[in-house]
Every structure is written in structure tokens, then in C-alpha cells.
Amino acid sequence: MSPISPPRRRFLRLLAWCSGWTLLPRLARPDDDRLRQSLEELTGGVEPAFHPGVGLRMPSRAVSRLAVPVRVNCRLRHVDMIALLVRDHPDPLAARFNLSPRTRPYIRTHLRILKDSEVIAVVRADGRYFRQSAKISVSEGCS
């Protein structure tokens, strides 16, 4: 088996690079654009960091798509905002809670999730933004 000649290797590299640039924008889903826009509006353009102190608990398989139970329980201090976003929704920001110091950073609610998706919890603590996410499958549940 003969090794690939350098010009051919260069051509293959160029082809891979070009196809990546032309195909990637098509593969990017409009849902991601909406999610990115909602996140930017929520955080003012700051990218929230993943933090294990943001506890997001929800079932991996939903029993009902109309009421998926979600619980956010933070172990961070000075939390004054909790938001829940659903990736594949036309309007990803499902709920936003502004908390006072008398309210614990603990929220339970039910979301409407119509197809397999990802729920993202964004928390503001001490002026910094953190996030946690969990995937959910609703395709096997009841209506």
C-alpha cells in the first residue's frame, strides 16, 4: 500500500477544511440561536459557567409532557435569580425567579416539554452567572 503523496494530503486537508466551513452553519439549529439569544438577554452577554453547586433535578424520562417536574436547589450564597430554559422551545426562557434574601435558592415547578430536549438552569449568585443542565426524554411518556 503506497503512502499518500504530500500534494494529495494537502488537497484532502483543504477539502476537509472547506467542507467544514460550508456544512457547519447548516448543521447549527435555529433552536440554538434562540437559546443563545435568550441566554444573552438573561445574562447581559456573560457566558454562565458550569457549577456543581447549582442542583438541577428532574427525571430523565417524563411521565407527562405537559408537566415535567423540575427542582433547582442551589448550594451557592447570595443567589438572587434562578431561570429555567428549554433548548428546543420557540421561546426558551420558561421561567425566571427573582429572589430576595428571605427566600431560599430553592424552586420547584412544572414545565411543558413537547420533545426530547435539554433543560438549563441559570443562577445569579454574587453577580456572577452559573448554569447546570439536564437532558430529558419525553418521547416515551404519555401526553
Partner: peptide, 25 residues
């Protein structure tokens, strides 16, 4: 009379909404 929690919702909330919150002091 003092505001301790304010929430805004989109259409992604459940049709029959449920919430739980915990209050200190």
C-alpha cells in the same frame, strides 16, 4: 407587604402551573 419573590413565565410553563418555594425568618 414586602416583595420576597417575583417570577415571570413564558409559554414553556406547564398549562396547570405548580411552584414550591421556601421562606426563611
Amino acid at each position: 407587604g414586602v416583595l420576597i419573590l417575583e417570577a415571570g413565565f413564558g409559554p414553556g410553563i406547564a398549562p396547570e402551573p405548580f411552584f414550591a418555594l421556601r421562606i426563611d425568618d
